[in-house]
Design a protein around this nucleic acid. Structure first.
Lengths: 165, 165
DNA sequence: TTGCGTGCAAATCTTTTGCAGAATG
DNA sequence: CATTCTGCAAAAGATTTGCACGCAA
């Protein structure tokens, strides 16, 4: 169902942690307590997050805290490993799951900052067509449609009534 | 011609400077030597730029220098006035002309960092269709297709020959 | 003359780096 | 045991802010 606000997961053979272990091994890097903790935290929910928020979450963690530099270092590794994707949203740098989720684009509510995911074959088609015209070799794209989500649009249409209660 | 790498200008009644003056007046703000200098510099070429680059250009200016805080303050004003649009490109925050140029999207070369503008009615159509599906009220969008431009793609296909000369 | 605007210096915020000690394979 | 990692402190880069003086209207 491409209309679902939360896209369906894609079937993957390995868990994010296993996938990351493979990546680390391929680079002669080590699986540490901290890296494990970060992967657990990051993949325990699907929301978009930024480095600072993750630091907070890991700060409160019962498993022991992880330092800020380590969080930044590991986020970069997870990006290189293809587990996370970084994105710029109204000046905020947020991460989202990449591994195990299908290609998608976003609707971004400027009021409540909600991020809605959607998939469209059309976008891929346009990408190819435009690229061909310009002799450009596309490797990816990013489409963000900004505006107001249904709730905020409704609220905006009749703000008086609600505010004057 | 929507295929031109450099899109055609749109007819506008006022110069950017005049438009900015109107904006300032509407807010009881003043036209100063510095603001005038910044607008002149910014609209003297069509390239994308960031705050730092603009500071450099204004530093060399014969008309006297403009301080960094003023550059930042004025860029924000120009954005609010609808003269400039800010955009995040691979972590770099760049500005582009908004006033006097048509709605467009970008092809971004990951190698040479070139930015190619293109216009597509299709994108606008998709935007409306997706928004309708999600009861979303769109106000704008941003589409960036990343990859390699024609020159860089060519260079990449046969790097040996060129590098071994 | 009355504020608004500017430049300076310093503060913020976010992210990165050098390094000594800790942990992993 | 040889290296890789981590945390700390500090550096770095980008942007913002407080304030006293200067300038536009």
């Amino acid at each position: 169902m491409s209309n679902a606000f939360q896209l369906e997961k894609v079937q993957v053979a390995l868990t994010p942690l296993e996938r990351f272990e493979e990546f680390l091994q391929s680079r002669r890097m080590r699986m540490t307590q901290q890296r494990r903790q970060i992967v657990d935290e990051v993949f325990s929910r699907h929301e978009h997050f930024n480095a600072d928020e993750l630091c907070d979450l890991l700060g409160r963690s019962s498993a022991g805290r992880v330092s800020r530099p380590t969080v930044y270092r590991t986020l970069k590794e997870l990006e290189e490993a293809g587990l996370l994707r970084k994105m710029n949203l109204a000046g905020r740098r947020v991460y989202e799951h990449d591994y195990g989720y299908p290609q998608h684009d976003h609707l971004y509510c400027e009021k409540c900052e909600k991020l809605i995911e959607f998939h469209s074959e059309e976008v891929a088609r346009i990408r190819e067509a435009v690229a061909r015209e310009h002799h450009f070799r596309p490797s990816g794209h990013r489409l963000i449609i900004t505006g107001l989500c249904s709730e905020c649009a409704r609220a905006k249409r009749r703000p008086r009534r609600l505010e004057l209660v």
